[in-house]
């Protein structure tokens, strides 16, 4: 019954029959989701609170595995392998699929050390290489102009919007294939939000992006594809302009016209 549009581009990820159940929950939070994610494009996930959009997002980098007892069924195919397999190397996976959180998560260390964190984890010790890659990442996240002169300052002294861009710089420094954004602007003011949205659009040249948002205008502005979720089901996945203008499913239409949610 779900309407899933054909993705014409190469696929970055493909979700196949994914069912996810939280530890101790009587019913699954994701029910047999099938969803292609197009490469080098932005896919937005929208839907009312509790619909499972963040749960789905956190399955892509196996964030759920930090807490015991949750179960996955089905597959998520990435680079030809099923990343839900118990044999998957989560440390490697998370360097390939990065994540930006709802609230900025600057580590209690300097701006430089924040961005260098993921690089150092990969064993890069060469000072010039670290410097160059930190600079490139900060430029890529459009924050170099603001912090380039004070890389040694504590990252927690930055504003919320700057911290969020710092987190994006930190994530892109390790050159992931996919970036997951979990409501990245819900804690930010309108100007910072605009900055992040512009950044998302620029970044898709280099990475494939999945963004969870409760703001439908944001989904319409930044994404190429939009998935509408409701109570653990993916109701509809379509090209963003089609989904917002001529939705196929009645539920989608009701949601985007503000009848519920």
């Amino acid at each position: 019954m779900a309407t899933i549009v054909e993705v014409t581009e190469e696929k970055a990820l493909e979700v196949k029959n994914l069912t996810f159940t939280y530890a101790g929950a009587p019913a699954p939070s994701l029910k047999k989701i099938n969803m292609p994610i197009a490469k080098n494009s932005v896919t937005a996930l929208i839907g009312p609170s509790g619909c499972g959009k963040t749960t789905l997002l956190r399955s892509f980098n196996r964030m759920h595995d930090l807490y015991p007892g949750h179960t996955y069924e089905g597959e998520i195919v990435f680079e030809g392998r099923n990343i839900l397999s118990p044999k998957e190397d989560l440390i490697k996976l998370r360097t390939q699929i990065g994540m930006i959180f709802q609230k900025p998560t600057a580590f209690p260390m300097s701006i430089f050390d924040n961005v260098a964190y993921g690089l150092r984890l990969q064993g890069i010790k060469n000072k010039t290489e670290l410097r160059d890659r930190v600079e490139a990442a900060l430029k890529g996240a459009a924050i170099w102009k603001e912090v380039g002169e004070r890389l040694k300052d504590d990252a927690n002294g930055l504003s919320g919007g700057q911290q969020q861009r710092l987190c994006i710089a930190r994530a892109i420094a390790v050159e992931p294939e996919v970036l997951l954004f979990d409501e990245p602007t819900s804690a930010l003011d309108p100007i910072s939000t605009q900055g992040i949205e512009e950044l998302v659009t620029e970044l898709k040249e280099r990475v494939s992006i999945i963004i969870v948002t409760h703001n439908m205008q944001q989904a319409a502005r930044v994404s190429d594809y939009t998935g509408f979720m409701y109570m653990g089901d993916l109701i509809e996945l379509g090209r963003t302009e089609d989904l917002f203008v001529t939705p196929t499913e009645k539920l989608t239409e009701e949601y985007i016209s503000g009848k519920f949610g």
């Binding site: 998370r94 993921g118 984890l121 390790v174």
Partner: peptide, 13 residues
């Protein structure tokens, strides 16, 4: 905050 831990895990730590 647990989000700080998650952020570090999300970088492959």
């Amino acid at each position: 905050p647990s989000t700080l831990r998650e952020a570090a895990f999300a970088l492959g730590a």
